[in-house]
Design a protein around this nucleic acid. Sequence first.
DNA 1: AAAAAACGATAGTAATACTATTACTTTTGT
DNA 2: ACAAAAGTAATAGTATTACTATCGTTTTTT
Lengths: 222, 222
Amino acid sequence: MKNIQLHIEVNSGLYLKNPDTSDLGRKIICQSIKMINELGFESFTFKKLGVQIDSPESSIYRYFENKHTLLIYLVSWYWSWIEYLLVFSTMNIDSSSEKLERSIKVLTEPILEKYPTTYIDEELLNQIIIKESVKAYHTVDVDDENKKGYFKTYKKVVQRVSELVLEVNPKYKFPHMLISTVIEGAHQQNYFAQHLPTLTDVTEGKNNVSEFYTNMVNKVIV
Amino acid sequence: MKNIQLHIEVNSGLYLKNPDTSDLGRKIICQSIKMINELGFESFTFKKLGVQIDSPESSIYRYFENKHTLLIYLVSWYWSWIEYLLVFSTMNIDSSSEKLERSIKVLTEPILEKYPTTYIDEELLNQIIIKESVKAYHTVDVDDENKKGYFKTYKKVVQRVSELVLEVNPKYKFPHMLISTVIEGAHQQNYFAQHLPTLTDVTEGKNNVSEFYTNMVNKVIV
DNA sequence: AAAAAACGATAGTAATACTATTACTTTTGT
DNA sequence: ACAAAAGTAATAGTATTACTATCGTTTTTT
């Protein structure tokens, strides 16, 4: 897997110039992931990013309309990447329930391994998803941006795993609700574990979040 | 029934002057709920609010440090109010599982009734919780604000219902995870139903969200 | 070698999120 | 009833943010 060239695709409406095609573009992506993590999305600005990559603010605006579309770009990239993980982790597995279980694991376990295939630090990006991704679609412009296809990679992941749910139990009524609850819930619980622990039941060392949602899916769909 | 507050009270650190004690303060709360709904939290400003209530921006700053603490105030007020609903809806019910079921209903069904007891429009406030409440605690200052007790009313609600879960099944390992997943999930699903429907399985007329989570809780805790 | 694209440097603007000051008005405590 | 305290209006001002515009230079493509 480490030597495979992944073709991660994001909606071309998300950028003015594809950051993947130039050195400056890749620096923008790479450094913005670090800075959004350090500063939080609100305090992150193109001006500060420009200082770090030693390029003027205006050059960044040639790639992204604003920091909000940059965030959606990162979120979109993440889900496209997750789809690869889902495909790889269920490859050559016959049993649908085994495929589902492995998929839930991918969606709920923290990203720890380094996959040095790209210039993007997926572990850090995962932290951005946990902390900031709700801000990507909790805006006044959701409907408009949804129409433009900005959230397609996320919806594809939910769709893919929902289909596995239906393979296991074709009569189950709420596969999409179940999977989006698992995905969003797992992020939420990881966030709570870090900042509002009384809202969770995390015990040190054990990955209770993954255990909880795996158990939940198994019990709910039978 | 545990120590329940008789008045809806929010942490006094959330305001500089209690908005409940003056005409201007109540106008600030009442109008800000309307405006955050209309404009979205990002586009809502104290300046615009001042124009609407015909008071200068600086007067609003005498009540709230900034719009972020105002949002936490509203969220906090909401959960304090929800706790009342929980208490009322489980009053005189003997069966723990019946109490739990009624509580889940309160947490997952949309607020539609008008309670004209206060100057606050709870239905509109519920919409703010659905759309904007994640922004109240997804910030760099969470840990600090958590220490100050800003999220206490929310944590109390989760704690109360988690205890009901344990009454039904004392051996269940993840009561807090379950309840916070239900609460956050229900908001999320209502939001998705409005804006990203492919992530849900909503059918017109029926409240599938409540059905889904009620079913989920019942299956998970046995 | 010429044309096109990308980039750096600099400047500028409207809006945001506040802070500060002063003076007038209302509430309150005795 | 009256002074003190508290609350409010009006106005002004600041640093930062989120952009937009221009222009000359460098780099890449053909």
